[in-house]
Simulated assay, not measured.
Amino acid sequence: MVGNGSRAAIIDHRRITGLSADVIAELVAEAGPLWHEQHRAGLESRRRQRAVDAGAKHRLVFLDRLLAAPVHLRHGATHDVLACWFGVHRSTITRAIGEVRPLLATRGCTIAAGSRLRTLAEVIDHLGVSGQTGITDGTEIRVRRPAVGRKDREKFISGKNEQNAVKAMVLTDTSGRLLLCSPAQPASCADITHARQLGLVKHLSGGPAVEILADAGYQGLGAQTGGRVVTPPHPQVQEEPAGVVRGDLRAPAQGALLTPAPGRARHRTPQELAGTRSPPRPTRALERQDPSHRRTEPFRVR
């Protein structure tokens, strides 16, 4: 079990967890009773040979379990490292993080005193009532490579950075305040596909008139939502200059003509056409085919 001094250092230094001491105290007050209730319900749900509260006590108390989860999520520390830090077995850290993360997810995002947003529908309604513009994008977090033989192992490889990662869709307002962070999906899932799976199109089509800004990864949602998702326009195709046929290697206006040369077709430069530059020397393959192209000057040793 981590000592009181180490626990106080984790709470006092915000860089470790990303949370202030007041927020951590609020999380303990809210999530603590829920965790104890779930733990007791799990013990009572199966047949036991002794009382529920009998036996050894937890070496990792709820506060330490709560601190281990944000440290893991913020810095990506492995469970082995956290187990050494907290003085418990790795399986204890794995079980603790698995119990705490759902409690943090159901808490939602606090936007005001006593007001929280937990679902995408609530976020859309909040933006519609307040008249604000939303900003959405997908973010990737690198994860350890799945074990060999695991089903759909390649789905975690991101097409953007070719690394094993998971992806989540984040929705904020124009001031950067977090409104929603979706459940993670394998990184091979495209941003627009993830948004459709979360029901963004359905909530925007049948909800209030909300404008959401997105990058080029969400192009196509604007037509499906009546223009409520604003994305950068597709690049315009530039018109070809007069006299240029699509597929030409070089335009005549640039001063080069496509003329045949011995052995193969190539471009003649303006200097060659003007006679101020000699053509390139024939290759050895051309000399073997046509002896008239053989070099007359001796070879020089460089």
Rank of each mutant, 00 (worst) to 15 (best):
G76Y: 08
A56S: 04
R268N: 12
V23W: 00
T78D: 08
G275T: 08
G55L: 04
I93N: 05
V123K: 01
Q38D: 06
R46Q: 13
Q38R: 12
A113D: 12
A253Q: 13
P102G: 03
G159F: 06
C189A: 10
R101E: 09
T283W: 08
H234S: 05
S205T: 09
A8M: 12
H203M: 07
Q132W: 11
L117D: 10
A195W: 08
G108L: 08
R47H: 10
A195I: 13
R142F: 08
V237H: 11
A56D: 00
G243I: 12
D22G: 05
R118L: 03
L60W: 14
R65A: 00
N164K: 00
G222Y: 01
A113V: 10
H203V: 15
P298D: 10
P270W: 07
L200M: 15
A256S: 15
S188I: 00
W85Q: 05
T133G: 10
P270V: 10
A187M: 01
A195V: 14
R300W: 05
S115T: 15
R177P: 00
V71M: 13
H126F: 12
W85Y: 10
D215Q: 14
L19N: 06
E122L: 04
D12H: 12
T119L: 04
K167H: 06
R295P: 01
T119G: 05
H39K: 02
V166I: 09
R295N: 09
N164C: 15
K167P: 00
